[in-house]
């Protein structure tokens, strides 16, 4: 950790994938810090490695070399189980295609991450209700994903991401599959989570209108950051 206001520190990160012994370099020697409370947008052409970088910071993928420190934890040195536990406590995920479980109601989808906690039934209920109220869907909690619009599903997904009260929120093209109006709503919601709930947000996007809402925008091209 470089100083007290840095939440994410990326140092000399490189990442390659292998396809049948053929190395596909995706990221090469990237370093940067993200201050606490930041709302960062990552832009760049398709295939430039945005998702890869986001996944590394969120601890669902591992770099080929380099270290990533989040809130003082070197997550690159954690084993699978510790990393899973770390994710469940520290990171909220928002995906382009919402990725809700179709068999669960909105309420149950939001409750999902809490199954891994030791919270009491009552506490769980309070957390879920708070998260659903925050995204403005408390009245839809018994609906299944099929019964919700794309924008509503994404809001349920955001509620699921914040229900454990993580410090870091990562979003991979959260508006990529939405119409203009719904996208706008999602961006306003993310902005509120950043300003009111003090979540640090890292968002990958292709949409310049979405990027406008962020404090900072970084561009990734051919594996390098600018």
């Amino acid at each position: 950790m470089n100083n007290s206001s840095t939440i994410v520190s990326v140092q000399n990160i490189s990442k390659s994938y292998w396809r049948e012994k053929l190395e596909i370099p995706v990221l090469s020697n990237i370093s940067f810090d993200i201050p606490d409370g930041e709302f960062l947008s990552l832009m760049g052409p398709s295939g430039s490695g945005k998702t890869t970088l986001l996944n590394l910071i969120a601890g669902i993928d591992r770099p080929t070399s380099g270290t990533i420190t989040v809130s003082g934890n070197n997550i690159t040195s954690l084993n699978e189980t510790s990393l899973a536990k770390w994710r469940s406590n520290n990171v909220g995920f928002v995906f382009q295609f919402y990725n809700l479980l179709p068999v669960l109601t909105a309420y149950e989808n939001v409750e999902l991450p809490l199954l891994l906690t030791k919270l009491s039934k009552k506490e769980k209920k309070e957390h879920v209700q708070f998260a659903l109220e925050t995204v403005g869907l408390a009245d839809r909690m018994d609906h299944s994903p099929k019964q919700l619009s794309g924008g509503q599903q994404q809001r349920v997904a955001i509620a699921r991401a914040i229900v454990t009260d993580p410090t870091l929120l990562v979003a991979d093209e959260p508006t990529g599959d939405l119409d203009k109006h719904s996208a706008e709503e999602i961006m306003i919601l993310l902005e509120r989570l950043n300003s009111e709930l003090k979540k640090t947000i890292i968002m990958v996007t292709h949409d310049p209108r979405a990027a406008e809402k962020a404090h900072t925008t970084k561009h990734l091209d051919k594996g390098e950051l600018s």
Partner: peptide, 14 residues
Amino acid sequence: IREYAVLKTIGFTS
């Protein structure tokens, strides 16, 4: 498969 990946992302273990 995708759902299992999502569950793992959230912190579900093996």
